[in-house]
């Protein structure tokens, strides 16, 4: 996250930290963010996993404010299922249908348990988003500047505003790279944004009075660059896909 502030996971208790396992016993490497949408399911971005789409290669933590270190109250999960969108594809700049689902379970077969640092996030009503111009929260362990070599160890969050499709499709923004299954969000002064390493993490907007997973960090040109908003998978347009894979509607936080 460029700009914004450091935070505790209690302020974003649906945030999931997804790590890729390493060979030879070295500790896993942070890969991407995600969001807990039901006790057994985390939503993230397909582009995080497309090069290594094997569930055995990943481990998921909930309740982490600090990356790669022990956090009191954290829970660790293996990935029981890894589902990437079947129509995921990459353009020169854009990712399309950039959504993935991870079914999680502990080594003893449990799903997530609620606590001060672990909570589900609501899903939006079908085809419903917050109005353009609304403030939404982004969260992640991603870079604080695109040119940084190191990633921050502590969780960060910030606030960006939803940008209309009309605006985001302007030639000096992203032109035809944008479609209606994506959401653009940016800071009017271009001082804060999601960045490399924040992929898969949540864009949380208030819809009908509830914090709601409106977007999933997907792509963008640079970070906090003028006229180049962050682009997010538009969750409200993937509810049928989510439901078809998770199955039971009652387990979902609509």
């Amino acid at each position: 996250i460029v700009g914004g502030e450091f935070t505790e996971v209690e302020n974003q208790p649906w945030f999931a930290a997804i790590y890729q396992k390493n060979k030879g016993g070295s500790p896993p490497s942070f890969k991407c963010g995600g969001s807990l949408i039901s006790p057994c399911w985390v939503a993230s971005a397909a582009h995080c996993f497309i090069q290594l789409p094997k569930k055995e290669n990943y481990v998921v933590y909930l309740g982490q404010s600090k990356e790669s270190s022990y956090n009191p109250g954290e829970m660790k999960f293996e990935v029981e299922q890894l589902i990437l969108h079947e129509y995921y594809r990459e353009d020169s700049l854009a990712y399309h249908n950039d959504i993935a689902l991870l079914k999680i379970r502990t080594s003893t077969g449990q799903c997530a348990q609620p606590s001060r640092s672990i909570q589900t996030i609501c899903l939006p009503p079908r085809f419903t988003d917050a109005p353009f111009g609304s403030d939404c929260e982004i969260t992640g362990f991603g870079k604080e500047s695109e040119s940084d070599y190191l990633y921050p160890k502590n969780l960060k969050m910030s606030v960006v505003k939803l940008v209309s499709h009309e605006q985001c499709m302007q030639p000096h923004y992203y032109g035809s790279e944008i479609n209606y299954k994506m959401l653009c969000a940016a800071d009017p002064e271009w001082k804060t944004d999601s960045c490399k390493g924040d992929s898969g993490g949540p864009l949380i907007c208030n819809i009908e009075g509830r914090p709601t997973l409106s977007g999933i960090v997907s792509w963008g040109r640079g970070c906090a660059e003028k006229n180049k908003p962050g682009v997010y998978t538009r969750v409200s347009h993937f509810l049928d896909w989510i439901q078809s894979h998770i199955g039971e509607e009652k387990g979902l936080a609509f």
Binding site: E8, E10, N11, Q12, P13, W14, S38, P39, C111, A112, Q113, P114, R116, S117, Q119, T120, I121, C122, L123, D135, E137, V159, N206, E208, G209, R210, P211, T212, K250, G251, A253
Partner: peptide, 22 residues
């Protein structure tokens, strides 16, 4: 404003233990 109800596992979507920023 509507609020989510507590599910069978004790989750209440979108509810923070800390005060929301909205």
């Amino acid at each position: 404003k509507p609020s989510s109800s507590v599910d069978q596992q004790g989750f209440q979507c979108g509810q923070k233990a800390l005060r929301p920023r909205f």
